[in-house]
């Protein structure tokens, strides 16, 4: 294998940085969800990279769990965004003054 562990690590750090930039700058709720997805993918990339270089199957198993939980998180997050959109007619998180039902 010509690629080293550190190459994958650096791509993962770049994705993490982009995700944190998105989370701190964007105010659109859907864009913030994009940023969270990018961060989760950076973490998964690390898990699988370490699993390949150890080599051990545990990292891949954990990555599969992580992908499934991320799917659940996106479903709930999008439902919350839709509810908030219905209440405030906006997806800007600064407009979500109160989340009372």
């Amino acid at each position: 294998m010509s690629n080293e562990l550190i190459d994958f690590f650096i791509v993962s750090i770049a994705l993490l940085g982009i995700g944190i930039y998105g989370l701190s700058v964007k105010r659109n709720a859907i864009r913030m969800l994009f940023a969270v997805e990018i961060i989760i993918n950076a973490a998964n990339l690390n898990l699988v990279a370490f699993a390949r270089f150890l080599p051990h199957s545990g990292g891949q198993t954990l990555a599969l769990f992580s992908i499934a939980i991320a799917a659940a998180e996106v479903a709930v997050g999008l439902a919350l965004i839709i509810v908030a959109y219905r209440m405030y007619k906006n997806v800007d998180i600064a407009e979500f003054r109160s989340l009372k039902g």
């Binding site: 994009f34 699988v48 990279a49 390949r52 891949q60 990555a63 599969l64 992908i67 499934a68």
Partner: peptide
């Protein structure tokens, strides 16, 4: 590239296939 085809297929099915379409 990391020789994990199963995780790659899972990623495509779950992320590219369902989450992206949901979004």
């Amino acid at each position: 590239l990391l020789d994990s085809p199963f995780v790659a297929m899972f990623q495509i099915a779950v992320y590219v296939g369902s989450i992206a379409v949901l979004i």
